[in-house]
Write a protein that binds this DNA or RNA. Structure first.
Lengths: 195, 195
DNA sequence: ATCACTTCTTGATCCGGATCAAGGAAACGC
DNA sequence: GCGTTTCCTTGATCCGGATCAAGAAGTGAT
């Protein structure tokens, strides 16, 4: 079996079991998509045509506000799902952008394939329901964290939660994720060394 | 028809059409639940046993962090859905609390009723999918807003978006929603008067 | 009407992030 | 190797929110 599909299956099974027959139906539906470093799957104003499973690489999902200020909503690495569901289903332009921070390989579903997958593979549908719920809860936690903790605490938690990302992602992107300027992050790190 | 059910139907149809027959199946499933002011539907550590449609009243959905600091994730008024989906489905204790800020009337689904509704009423299932997507997107926007805008801007946007809530909800709850102290909100409002 | 409690405001001080500016370090091109 | 660009750090100043404290205004109970 193609290793990308094998990893997709392992990823699904980590959440919800799927039979051989079901996975055989599923595997034909997404297509392998390669992205170069810096490339966008979609940008502010585009319609997000795909929902994709990240097989290799690392991406950032971000927005700019009216003043051009940029904030990163999440980083996606191996095993994450990416896409703008709202735009994907409504066919309306998205306010968000998705950019590869490294060369990436994705298993990408277009709308027809994704709907077919949900209809013909019940375990996949169930899997997605669980995933969405968790994503929703995770997002709530992030909102809460943004409101309650100091940038320093957020940095500590980020390091603890995603130690490997620290080595893959430039600090100014991490600052944009934490909601502060690169200068502020630099000072936080400097303060920390003493301890 | 009972006016609470009529409003539920109107609310669903605002998003997705539902036939008479389908709504007849649906209407029997939730039960009317009354809450007094200050009462909780669930609290941190409880399991959220219901997902409910707010027919009357106003509630707040909030969390406390380790230091006891409280932040409100959303206010729910007539037409909103409330509940902690993660806890509702996983049967795990929730980290969040849901409290009535006024006497409330809810149409509440327990897990069995909710699953039955989704299985037997396809339009309802479709309706919920759309709702969840919007809720997810709305939550992302809130996270982004929390990270990019100043408390003063957030206050302005809140007033513009929820003008009626300003009259129903004490300011210290609005401060908790905006992520600031009541003192800071008071000063923001004082600054604003001049303009 | 009075008392208690809740809610909101104001004052003073402290602290940390934003901003503007500049310099150092590392990566990458040719 | 050299030079350029990218990335990170450091400095100085400003500003606004947090905190502690006190008081005012509004609300409800008896």
């Amino acid at each position: 079996m193609d290793p990308a599909h094998a990893r997709l299956r392992a990823h699904i099974e980590a959440t919800h079991p799927i039979s051989d027959a079901e996975f055989d139906t599923l595997r034909a539906l997404p297509s392998l998509m390669r992205m170069k470093k810096g490339e966008h799957l979609f940008q502010q104003g585009d319609i997000s045509k795909y929902v994709a499973h990240v097989d290799k690489g690392c991406l950032r999902y971000y927005t700019n506000n009216a003043d051009g200020l940029e904030r990163i909503l999440y980083f996606a690495v191996e095993g994450w799902w990416v896409g703008d569901l709202e735009s994907f289903y409504s066919n309306e332009p998205t306010a968000n952008s998705l950019q590869a921070l490294e060369p990436c390989e994705l298993l990408a579903f277009n709308l027809a394939a994704f709907e077919q997958a949900k209809e013909t593979v019940p375990s996949f549908r169930k899997f997605l329901e669980i995933k969405w719920r968790r994503a929703y809860t995770g997002n709530q936690e992030r909102t809460f964290q943004a409101m309650t903790s100091t940038p320093e605490e957020r940095y500590e938690q980020f390091v603890k939660k995603y130690p490997t990302l620290m080595e893959r992602i430039p600090l100014y992107h991490i600052a944009a994720y934490l909601g502060i300027t690169p200068e502020a992050l630099s000072r936080i790190r400097a303060r920390r060394v003493g301890r």
